[in-house]
């Protein structure tokens, strides 16, 4: 991906992350990372973005390998439920470099709603990226 296209992709990702955050106050952090762990876009949070992007890459790759070992075809999402919140890592469908969206939410957010909102954002990003040249 050339630099100009990378900037255009990052702008699309940022737009939808900001919207996701604005619509869901329980979201504490969110970013979109490349498959090899580079941060493309993020909402401001207390979490170090570059580190979270690298961890996103590792976690999703491990998820994909487990899915592969279990013959479940393709890893879509990785879910972490914690004592005071949850973390979702979602594949952005059909993205050229296998983009992954990570969202950290507090425990006030209902998991089903979080999953629905994140999947909707991922789908919208995917659709918008088809027109980015």
């Amino acid at each position: 991906m050339n630099r100009k296209k990378q900037q255009a992709v990052a702008a699309v990702c940022q737009e939808y992350l900001d919207k996701l955050h604005a619509d869901n106050k329980g979201i504490l952090a969110a970013l979109i990372a490349s498959a090899d762990g580079f941060n493309l876009a993020a909402i401001r949070s207390a979490i170090e973005e570059e580190r979270l992007a690298a961890m996103t890459s590792s976690m999703h790759a491990l998820g994909a390998e487990i899915v592969n070992a279990a013959n479940l075809k393709k890893c879509h999402d990785v879910v972490i439920e914690a004592a005071e919140g949850k973390v979702l890592m979602l594949n952005i469908p059909n993205s050229e470099d296998g983009l992954i969206m990570t969202v950290v939410a507090n425990d006030a957010m209902v998991f089903g709603h979080l999953l629905w909102a994140c999947r909707q954002a991922a789908t919208q990003i995917s659709e918008k990226l088809t027109s980015v040249k």
Binding site: A35, D36, S57, A61, L62, A64
Partner: peptide, 23 residues
């Protein structure tokens, strides 16, 4: 081998097509 190789986008570090991101 259990491998977590993904597409490498960091061509400054290496020209390799893939890179290990977990283990």
């Amino acid at each position: 081998v259990v491998s977590t190789d993904v597409k490498n986008s960091d061509i400054v570090q290496s020209q390799k097509a893939t890179t290990t991101v977990a283990m």
